[in-house]
Design a protein around this nucleic acid. Structure first.
Length: 258
DNA sequence: ATGGTTGCCTTGCAA
């Protein structure tokens, strides 16, 4: 089973990229973030045509998450149980092929001195609490998405420049450690020790060209899935222009399970 | 030197 996470930074503006990715990579499960489309306008045709089921949870302009799969999608959950109906669309979870897949778009945080940074930490705390209270780390579960946190120095192009800033802050690392303590493993690090492999590059300043990136798109897995993980890859090509369609600022990341 | 680019549509704001 191949599970992919991809922050697409607007689904409707890159229809051919999505099609191309599904055709060439054929993931069993695709978790999308920043779809930026309300549910009534969700482009489900592409998924239908390529034989994918899809469940989504979106809003206008901002945020938005979706899970697509080739097998049937069961037990879909949208948002935290405690969320208001008008909450930001950042979480969708579903069971596919016996694996509980939790797809998240973690708040960016803007800057450390912003109220948005406090919201980010609060949201991560909610996620951790909800996971622990309603899930079993002994069961196969994948928590994937755009975490907007680079785990360690290897995941940042200039750690000393980034340290203490949003996306690479001690409070964020403490939040990440709580997921680890609960029983989640960074699937990428089961197979790669090296640094310099990133999943996001700023649109500005030729960041992609200079490989000035961060690895902030993660697939965290419980032990039963970690034991089945045979490889993790970052689809660097998804960050390049394709047939005149501009890329998202994120690359897709895939993990394969036996 | 707080720059640069992208997407949505609040042509400013979030990322």
């Amino acid at each position: 089973m191949k599970i992919t996470t991809w922050n697409v930074n607007s689904l409707r503006t890159r229809p051919n990229r999505l099609r191309q990715f599904l055709e060439t990579e054929a993931p069993d499960v695709l978790c999308l973030q920043e779809t930026k489309v309300e549910d009534a306008s969700f482009p489900r045709e592409t998924f239908d045509e390529l034989g994918y089921q899809v469940e989504f949870f979106g809003e206008k302009t901002y945020n938005g998450v979706a899970i697509a799969a080739r097998q049937s999608i069961e037990s879909v959950q949208r948002a935290f149980p405690t969320d208001e109906t008008d909450c930001q669309r950042r979480l969708i979870a579903a069971t596919v092929g016996g694996v509980r897949v939790v797809n998240v778009y973690v708040p960016n945080g803007s800057s450390v001195d912003s109220p948005k940074f406090a919201f980010k930490l609060e949201w991560l705390g909610q996620l951790r609490q909800w996971l622990a209270s309603e899930h079993d780390a002994g069961q196969p579960l994948a928590l994937c998405g755009d975490f907007n946190i680079a785990p360690d120095d290897r995941d940042v192009w200039a750690p000393d420049k980034w340290r203490g800033n949003v996306l690479f802050h001690p409070d964020e690392h403490a939040a990440l450690k709580e997921f680890q303590d609960w029983g989640l493993h960074d699937a990428f690090r089961l197979h790669h020790e090296e640094g310099g492999l990133y999943s996001w590059w700023d649109y500005r300043g030729g960041a992609f060209r200079f490989n000035h990136g961060l690895r902030i798109d993660l697939i965290l897995v419980t032990k039963p899935l970690a034991d089945r993980c045979t490889g993790v890859s970052i689809h660097r090509d998804t960050r390049k222009v394709l047939d005149g369609e501009k890329p998202s600022d994120h690359a897709a990341v895939s993990a394969v399970f036996a």
